[in-house]
Amino acid sequence: MTRPSKDPATLIPLKHSTYRVLLALPDGELLHGYAIMQAVSEMTDGRETILPGTLYAALARMVDAGLVEAEEAPDDDKSGGPRRRYYRRTTFGRAVARAESERLRALLDIAVAQKVISGGKK
């Protein structure tokens, strides 16, 4: 298993799937896999989806890297079906998400400066 890295910069740039999963997990909340799929779709108004294979491959890597942590289902889980795991973004995962966001914002600033896009908030 890969040892969790303490320096977020070592994981930058992130894979697109990893970044989306990190953003789909709000601070402190526990989500199961399907909920993460839905969260990704919702936060992008359905423009982006993540398929189960990509999602779980990303989750496996992220658990190894310490970006998310997995927990067994809480006792009050009423979803039915097989016992599932829930995932929570770690503090380190949050730091990595911020580092990646800053990298992307820097690129966005360049695009704005070059008038590739307008600078106003969409």
Binding site: H32, G33, Y34, M37, P52, Y56, L59, P82, R84, R85
Partner: peptide, 17 residues
């Protein structure tokens, strides 16, 4: 290894979608 760990969840996610 990963199949053993995640197969049930991944298939559940697929079925639900």
């Amino acid at each position: 290894g990963p199949r053993h760990d995640y197969a049930a969840e991944i298939i559940e996610a697929f079925e639900r979608e």
